[in-house]
Amino acid sequence: MSFVEYSDCIQDGDVAIVYLGHESMTPVKVKRGAQTQTRYGVIRHSTDLIGQRYGSKVTCSKGGWVYVLHPTPELWTVNLPHRTQILYTTDIATITMMLELKPGSVVCESGTGSGSLSHAILRTIAPTGHLHTVEFHQQRSEKVLEEFKEHRVDHLVTVRNQDACKDGFGVTGVADAVFLDIPSPWEAVRHAKAAMKKSGGRVCSFSPCIEQVQKTCEAFSDQGFEDINSIEVLLRVHDVRTVYLPLPDFGPDPSAQIQPDSTITPSQNHASIAVKTTIPPRDVQGHTGYLTFATKPRT
């Protein structure tokens, strides 16, 4: 297992995602001799996980069963331990495309936070790219590096414990893309520019508030960035349901009496029709943040 390469079987030391059913999952560090409790009973790693194929069904002690899934950045995003607010897949997907990330890209990121976006970036830029990520919170930067090691992607990433607004990204003239998710991104814009290749590149800033966007756009413009563009992407989930719409009883139909043989009219009281449709979840996320993109021209 690695977050940048699929493998077929579960091995000691892997991170596996245990799928408990209907959006309920939990990440498990696979360790010989270890056990994991689920609501369907206990999973014994040595016998139930190690050597099994990813995607197979594992029967737990109480007779219930779960599926064990290969980790992906998307599954990690919904399972990771939160140390900060994180970016979700909808924004991550947009960022990845709009920053034009691909294998070989060199990317700068700040802050690292809980590493949700970082994993997605690493997946995309492997095997030849590199991520320089900056986190000013020491404990968080240590924790995330530990995770990168566990997930076998640490060869693709450098974590720096510094303040991107003051100290920049620790590299100059190497990045194809820069991503900012910090409270005052406008203070880091000149550092972003310095980190980027002479030939140019793409930059993105994520901010929840429009005032932050306003200031960031001004900073981009002042620093000579072009094609400045702010967008918002919202995910809409559709739950598939069969709904039953009852038919009202209009009373006896006099015209029907003309045909005496139609005595087997359906029991009018219970008549209803089934419709396969979708309904929106009761609560949906209406806002995550504004994404501001810009292009650094050749300098």
């Binding site: 702010s230 995910l235 809409r236």
Partner: peptide, 21 residues
């Protein structure tokens, strides 16, 4: 299969200009 999700997306562009956002 597991994790089935039916989704679509809204994309909204913003004009960001001093006093005209």
């Amino acid at each position: 299969t597991v994790n089935l999700k039916l989704t679509d997306y809204w994309l909204r562009h913003y004009q960001v200009l001093p006093n005209r956002t």
